[in-house]
Design a protein around this nucleic acid. Structure first.
Length: 259
DNA sequence: ATGGTAGACCTTCTA
């Protein structure tokens, strides 16, 4: 079973590119982020024509997440628990896989810039809520994949030029500490666990020729429960997508499970 | 030190 995560930076602006990738890559499940539209404006028909089921948690202009799966999506949860006042569409969870069920979440963790503002506080609060919710999900002791744009650079070798990110919310000690607190629940980073995983980034900024200079960062992650990690076969960074026409600034990150 | 790009949408905000 192939499960992908991809921040598409507007599903409508990117529709042809996204559909082309789905047709070629044939993921069984995909977690999309930054769809940048409300539920009613999500282009459901072309995905359904490719044989996919959909769950959408959208928002006007910003954010928005979706789950795309060849098998029906059940037990759908819209939004991250822990703050009833949070109106941003950044978390969507469901069980899919049919005969071999797996619980999958599409995560768009807040960017948090600039540091020292309410945006950074929101990021850290959101990460604390994610840790609390993940702790509950792990009690189920089932295959679980928390995949998405985490807006976290976990380690120094996940960024081409660490010095450029010292004042960025994606690379702050508090951010990395909150990420590690999440990992310490017993989650496995699929990228780090995969045999022979190539060094690679998942995001290159549109600005300042970042792609041409390979000035990238690894911020799109898939975190696995033990029941999922023991079935991990490998991971793929679809790097060539960044060189396509009108690319997203993120590329698809895909894991394969022996399910 | 600055500015560089992209998308939604109306004027600036987010990234």
């Amino acid at each position: 079973m192939k499960i992908a995560t991809w921040n598409v930076n507007s599903v409508n602006a990117r529709l042809d590119t996204v559909l082309d990738w789905f047709t070629r890559a044939q993921p069984d499940v995909a977690c999309l982020q930054e769809i940048k539209c409300v539920d009613e404006k999500f282009p459901r028909e072309p995905f359904e024509q490719l044989g996919y089921n959909l769950a959408v948690f959208g928002q006007k202009s910003y954010n928005g997440v979706a789950l795309v799966s060849k098998t029906p999506l059940e037990d759908v949860r819209r939004g991250l628990p822990g703050d009833e006042t949070d109106e941003q569409a950044r978390y969507l969870e469901a069980v899919t896989g049919g005969e071999t069920p797996v619980r999958v979440a599409s995560i768009y963790l807040p960017n948090g810039n600039p540091i020292g503002t309410e945006k950074f506080a929101y990021k850290l609060g959101w990460m604390d809520r994610l840790r609390a919710h993940a702790a509950e999900l792990l009690k189920l002791e089932e295959p679980l994949v928390l995949a998405g744009d985490y807006n976290v650079i976990p380690n120094d070798d996940d960024v081409k030029t660490p010095a450029n990110w010292m004042n960025d919310a994606l690379f702050q000690p508090e951010t990395r500490g909150a990420y590690r607190a999440l990992m310490w629940l017993g989650l496995t980073d699929a990228y780090q666990a995969a045999d022979g995983a190539p060094h690679g980034y998942t995001f290159w900024d549109y600005q300042a020729g970042a792609w041409q200079r390979n000035n990238g960062i690894r911020i799109d992650h898939a975190l696995l429960s033990a029941q999922a990690a023991e079935r991990l076969k490998g991971v793929t960074i679809h790097k060539q997508q960044r060189a396509s026409d009108k690319p997203s600034d993120h590329v698809p990150f895909e894991i394969e499970l022996d399910l």
